[in-house]
Every structure is written in C-alpha cells, then in structure tokens.
C-alpha cells in the first residue's frame, strides 16, 4: 500500500519535471543512436548474407567469404552477425532512451559499448592474424563500435 502511496506522490513531481523545463535531447546520445542504426543495418545485411549462404561462397574480390565462412562466424549454430544485430538494436534503444534523459540507460549503454568494443577487438585479431582476411562489412562494424566508444567517453567527460 505504501508503495502505491509513494508512486502517487512521485508521479506528479515527475510529470512536472517533464513539462517544465522539457528535458533537452542529448546530441551525443542521438548521434550514438544514429550510429547504432547504421551498425544494425550492417549486421542485418551480414546475417541475411550468412543465412542465405551468399557470403559463404568463396569469391575473387572479397575476404568476406573467408571471414563469414569461418567457424568463428557461428556461435551455437547462429550467425555471429545476428548477435551483432541484437547488440546494435539494444545499443540503439539505450541511446534513444538516454537521449531523452534516462541516466540509467546511459550507464547501461556505456557497459554494452564496452562489451561490444572488447568483442570487436577479438574479431579484428581473428581477421588479422588467424584468418588473414578482412571483410569490409565487419570492418565497418568495427569502425561504428569504435565511434560509439568515443561518443560514450566524450559524453561522460562532458557531464
């Protein structure tokens, strides 16, 4: 009961905060959301390429076949790119919520981006030293994640 009473007491205050002054939309988090969208599109493309088998075929021009056809491109039977798509979608959601003022979403985003960056470094290592082949779509994803790291650090530094 006391919870209800407390909720009832908090809600008008929160609503009041929302209306005056309206929360400013963070430009840095908005940029992070847009970048996450680009990463999401890239990861969806790679997932579809993998599932349809198109990228798995060896080709003359791209190292993608070497990278996406390798055992490292699959986790528990699912394409790694699918995990990437989920990560980018989560990053997009958190960045959007953070842009609209959620501090907690900002904290989770920082944690997620750190994990994504660690994964990116591992995948770059695999491409450079194990597979000795580069997939341009994977490199694009690495660039996006690196930019997300820069944005999260910049945001935290300017707080």
């Amino acid at each position: 009961m006391s919870v209800t009473a407390s909720d009832g007491a908090d809600k008008p205050a929160a609503a009041h905060q929302d209306e005056t002054p309206p929360p400013r939309i963070s430009r840095l988090y908005s940029l992070a959301a847009v970048l996450s969208l680009a990463g999401l599109a890239d990861a969806i493309f790679l997932t579809v390429e993998h599932l349809s088998g198109r990228s798995v075929r060896c080709t003359v021009t791209s190292g993608c076949s070497e990278v996406l056809g390798s055992p490292y491109a699959v986790i528990a039977g699912y394409p790694l790119a699918l995990l990437g798509a989920l990560a980018y979608f989560t990053a997009f959601s958190l960045a959007t919520l953070a842009a609209f003022g959620s501090r907690r979403a900002g904290n989770f985003l920082a944690l997620l981006v750190a994990l994504m960056f660690a994964m990116t470094l591992w995948l770059l290592y695999l491409q450079a030293f194990v597979l000795e082949a580069y997939c341009q779509y994977c490199l694009l994803s690495a660039a996006i994640t690196s930019l997300l790291v820069v944005i999260v650090i910049a945001r935290r530094a300017t707080k």
């Binding site: 969208l37 999401l40 599109a41 969806i44 997932t47 579809v48 798509a85 979608f89 997009f92 959601s93 959007t96 919520l97 842009a99 609209f100 959620s102």
Partner: peptide, 17 residues
Amino acid sequence: LPIIIIVGVLLVALAGG
C-alpha cells in the same frame, strides 16, 4: 516518444531483414 521510436525501428529492422 522514445518507446515509439524503438518499436518503429524494431519493426523496420525485422521487415528489412
């Protein structure tokens, strides 16, 4: 608004895939 944006992006992503 953020929830609407997120759900919208999810739907677009699924449709795009």
